Computed example of a mutant assay.
Amino acid sequence: MTFETLVAPASVADLTQAVLRGDYGPDPAGLHAVGAFWVRQSTQFPGTDTKYRNHYLVLRVESAFGGCCVERDQLDPSAAEELSGRALAELLRDPRTPVRIAALDAYLALVRPHREQAGAEPRLLPHGTPLQRAQARDAAIASLLRIAPGMRVGLIGVVNPLVEAIRSHGGVCLPCDFNLEFTADGTEVARDMRPVLAAADLVIATGMTLSNGSFDEILATLRARGVPLVVYAQTGSAIVPRFLGHGVAAVSAEPFPFSQFSADPTPIHLYRAAGIGRGDARAA
């Protein structure tokens, strides 16, 4: 099997098994997590009451990093202390979902770096404040597919600048998040994603759906409905592009180190499935 004839994965588990078979390149048994990091970070923009609390597991494999944002208490921080030195093949079989996702992301970031992907459009987020950089990032995400006035846009994983970006295009935002009750403008946030997936004309989801295990369900539901899915991925930035054209219509991929850790220009990589342009909102 050549890399050009790879069968599109139906799920994250399918992709993981393909990597373990060596379908994507070097045997992960011969690659090791040289570094493992645990990052705990919070953000609260001036004039708002919303505090975002993020926890990340990051693995370093040769010249690549793999990142996974996790829910509070989903993974013990001490995990980072025992993961370094272990073979990627072992980590890809780990019973803990965040460990598997970080390992898969690191492997694919190594063998499929964004800078070498013909379909990736690099874009630099500008030097600026956290809010300015978040607004630039979220405007890029919202522009990946055309949001027509009145279009119902499901947002799985709420970031308030992205809510604003959706509304600036005339979209009706249907927010869903485990950790927020209301958006900054007072819109109630759903906890159950299923009604959102059933009602939306377009869905934008965070890569954190990989770490909480909901990505496969979102993918299957929207495939069945013929509704396009856009993913903004810090978690799994190298994973999600493997689903382009097979459930995912577009991706904003942001590899580690993430934009919130710097004020200097940092890259994101914008992908669209083949045949989908900026003005399209067709399902992949």
Score class of each variant (00 low, 15 high):
Ala120Cys: 05
Ser252Asp: 14
Val172His: 14
Ala18Arg: 00
Val58Ala: 13
Ala284Lys: 01
Leu57Cys: 12
Gly171Thr: 04
Leu162Lys: 07
Val7Lys: 10
Ser143Thr: 15
Gly67Asp: 14
Ala89Ile: 04
Pro175Lys: 01
Ser42His: 12
Val203Gly: 11
Thr48Gln: 08
Leu75Pro: 07
Phe45Leu: 12
Ser237His: 07
Gln234Val: 14
Asn212Gly: 12
Gln234Cys: 15
Ala284Tyr: 02
Leu91His: 04
Leu59Lys: 08
Arg93Lys: 03
Arg60Lys: 15
Phe243Glu: 04
Gln260Gly: 02
Ile141Cys: 15
Leu131Arg: 00
Ser262Gln: 10
Val19Phe: 00
Val158Ser: 03
Ile101Asn: 01
Asp185Cys: 03
Asp201Leu: 03
Gln117Lys: 02
Glu164Tyr: 02
Leu219Arg: 07
Arg137Ala: 08
Asp27Asn: 13
Val231His: 12
Val19Ser: 01
Ala249Arg: 10
Leu210Glu: 05
Leu229Ala: 04
Val61Pro: 10
Cys173Arg: 06
Asp216His: 08
Glu81Ala: 15
Pro95Trp: 02
Ser63Thr: 14
Thr129Tyr: 01
Arg223Ser: 10
Tyr271Phe: 14
Met151Ser: 13
Ala224Asn: 09
Pro130Gln: 00
Gly128Pro: 00
Pro228Phe: 03
Val230Cys: 12
Gly236Pro: 09
Val230Leu: 15
Ile239Trp: 02
Leu6Gln: 04
Ala10Tyr: 06
Leu20Trp: 04
Ile147Tyr: 13
Ala148Trp: 14
Gln135Thr: 08
Gly186Trp: 09
Ala250Trp: 06
Gly25Trp: 00
Ser143His: 15
Ala10Ile: 03
Ser84Arg: 15
Leu15Val: 02
Asp216Asn: 10
Ala106Met: 07
Ile239Lys: 02
Gly30Cys: 02
Asp27Arg: 08
Glu121Gly: 00
Ile268Ser: 02
Ser11Trp: 01
His127Ile: 00
Arg115Cys: 05
Ile204Phe: 13
Ile276Ser: 06
Leu162Asn: 09
Asp94Thr: 01
Ala136Val: 00
Arg60His: 14
Met193Ile: 14
Gln74Val: 07
Val111Phe: 02
Trp38Cys: 08
Leu104Arg: 04
Arg93Glu: 09
Gln135Asp: 07
Arg72Ser: 12
Thr266Val: 15
Thr43Lys: 02
Thr221Ala: 15
Phe45Arg: 00
Ser84Gly: 14
Ala80Cys: 08
Phe215Asn: 11
Ser78Phe: 12
Asp73Lys: 10
Phe258Trp: 13
Ala281Cys: 15
Glu188Trp: 09
Val248Asp: 06
Asp94Tyr: 05
Tyr52Asp: 05
